[in-house]
């Protein structure tokens, strides 16, 4: 693992969480964005192919712009996300920082955690990544750590479950 880049400046007097997500998460986000771009561009190309010369003149332009913008996004944004996304689990709390244009810091006390889930989407499985979601009694409370190595995620979930059970309280 290469040396971590400096944490981005934040205007909040909260220090960033200690750990970065797994570097493969960048690949995951890039793959996701490329797939999204393909989904947006493919129908336009299909129409172009079917209609041939009858296709409206602006269609190649929008298709090109979609593809270029989408690929540029896939190239740039995942790296930014990787620099921002961070997480930390202490004996008392789960703490995450995520988001790009809208930053989001979430803190959930361990004593209020009700369930711990790990989740592997198809793309994440391909890259051996996983997300860990920590749910509290609140509908607005879930804290999700995305882009962890699958094994690390399983280990984290196990530790979290153990800690949660060790802490008394009915979590509301």
């Amino acid at each position: 693992m290469q040396t971590a880049p400096p944490p981005p400046p934040t205007a909040l007097p909260l220090r960033p969480p200690a750990h970065q997500v797994h570097p493969r998460a960048v690949r995951w986000w890039q793959l996701r964005d490329v797939l999204g771009t393909v989904l947006l561009t493919a129908p336009q190309l299909a129409v172009l192919l079917v209609l041939g010369a009858d296709a409206p003149g602006w269609l190649p332009v929008t298709a090109g712009v979609t593809a270029v913008l989408g690929l540029a996004y896939a190239l740039v944004v995942p790296r930014i996300l990787y620099r921002i996304h961070r997480w930390e689990v202490t004996g008392e709390a789960v703490y995450t920082l995520s988001g790009w244009l809208v930053r989001e810091w979430r803190i959930a006390p361990i004593s209020r955690v009700q369930t711990v889930d790990t989740e592997h989407g198809p793309l994440q499985q391909l890259l051996k990544l996983a997300s860990v979601t920590v749910t509290t009694a609140s509908a607005r409370g879930p804290v999700t750590i995305r882009g962890l190595d699958a094994d690390d995620a399983a280990e984290l979930a196990r530790v979290l479950t153990e800690t949660t059970q060790a802490v008394p309280g009915d979590a509301t």
Partner: peptide
């Protein structure tokens, strides 16, 4: 709850991963 996480984020500082 927040006490361990408070502190000014200084742009140049690096945090070691555990």
């Amino acid at each position: 709850l927040l006490a361990p996480f408070r502190g000014l984020p200084s742009p140049g500082r690096r945090r070691a991963a555990r």
